[in-house]
Design a protein around this nucleic acid. Sequence first.
DNA 1: TATTATTATCTACCATGGTAGTGAATAGCA
DNA 2: TGCTATTCACTACCATGGTAGATAATAATA
Lengths: 270, 270
Amino acid sequence: MVVNSIAGRLSSVGFSTYEAKAYVALLKENPLTAYELAKSSGIPTSKIYEVLTRLTEKKVVSSLGDEGTPRYIPMEADEFIERFRNGMESNLKALREDLSSLPGKAAVSYIWNILDHGYLIEKAHRTILDARKTLLVSIWKEELASLDVFFRRAEEKGVRIAMVHFGVPAVRIGQVYPHPIEETLYKEKGGRGLVIVADSETALMATVYANQRVEGAWSINKGFVTLAEDYIKHDVYIMKVVRRFNKELIEKFGPRYEHMRDVYEDKEIA
Amino acid sequence: MVVNSIAGRLSSVGFSTYEAKAYVALLKENPLTAYELAKSSGIPTSKIYEVLTRLTEKKVVSSLGDEGTPRYIPMEADEFIERFRNGMESNLKALREDLSSLPGKAAVSYIWNILDHGYLIEKAHRTILDARKTLLVSIWKEELASLDVFFRRAEEKGVRIAMVHFGVPAVRIGQVYPHPIEETLYKEKGGRGLVIVADSETALMATVYANQRVEGAWSINKGFVTLAEDYIKHDVYIMKVVRRFNKELIEKFGPRYEHMRDVYEDKEIA
DNA sequence: TATTATTATCTACCATGGTAGTGAATAGCA
DNA sequence: TGCTATTCACTACCATGGTAGATAATAATA
């Protein structure tokens, strides 16, 4: 669904390849007769007429000239785009109402699998922006690079953020707890982890492997969320302890979850 | 391109009819196995699997359950719509850049034909909102009903509006010059006229016939614009003269265009 | 002037890919 | 045996792309 060529983009607004070619060629030079357009666009002259009728019906080109052979002009690109957007916008609005008015029986409280990187980032992005109060994050710099804007925005909204960051943190968002053992971990798991918990309600967790392959899940399932939350809190706890005591002492500590209540209150950057 | 059914709306976001049925059915009740979904949606069981694969690829449904027969859940409608909108938005943005960066040779300064009512209103709407300084309008109540919001918005932006209105004006926008001879004119021309001139730069003129049939044109062609402008100014002039003098006197007046300079400055509502 | 090219418009036909629609084969399982 | 579950095979349709002509009207030229 994501396209990059100009033709691809036009096709996603309902143009066939010929229609796209014709429109683009017309924008480059106009007015043109059908025949001229066929030549300059590379569309077979035999096809140009039906293509032009289609485009005319879509009101993307218009013909001028009553006498003799008609010449064609394109609608200005901006205007066309605006028009399409308006149509789409109202369509989506109606669709939203339609779909939300369905007598849905079940709340979607299941676990949602995430298997590709683009989608992972998108889902993460949405999770971050949906957070109202708190965000617990465990992240590597690669993913943070794609997500820091959203974290900033959340922060501005007053969302409290605690972040375990693997490797040297390039940015400073909320409470950051740098996690030192980057390479070891990567080798061990074969990939980078990403965990985000928003408002203790929704959780996203995933592992990103070398070739951008992703295995992850998103859920509002209570058990899942708690698991993810504890996972991060545990790391935060460890980081704090490491800060304050030497290694010998750490060994005497078990993970004591009572100490984690104040994750958000901790003013020190570890 | 304008659709109203829920299926039609979904199809305009890239769903086939089966995909639409499946998604809607899944929203109503989930999770469901493929087989159950086939039953509740009316899709042939033989087709349900490929449909589900397609939907899964689109990330609109997700399967859960590793052991046994998988169950399917839909993405929440809002999320799906948001996602689609984002994609489309960025697509349109890119498209706008692509298209505007084309080495366009000619300014679109031609006359654009308008043959249907919906498009007429849309074009009028855009013309009104694009106006920066002045709007000269000749309009009947039917069209004004569809357009008054836009006139108000233009007025708020500080656009000066002078309007010849056929029949008793229901709303008051800018300078309104009511035109009395409604029925006579309608019979004579067989339809209602609509003329809009924005900033002396763009003009829209059209006649709307009984069955919503429309014949009209839009242009930035200088001659066309001047014509439309004078047409309205002429009417305004007549209206003013009629106001001030009795009929005998009017006959001695020819249309004197010098008097029209102050159309916008005239503070009286005729 | 006759004839040959070129331009211009339009119809017809075919191949393809995608989807809808139908039927049926297979298999597990209660 | 009947229900669930899954896959195959095949037909039909439609929009699109692609290729060939059928006509005319001009323009070029012998």
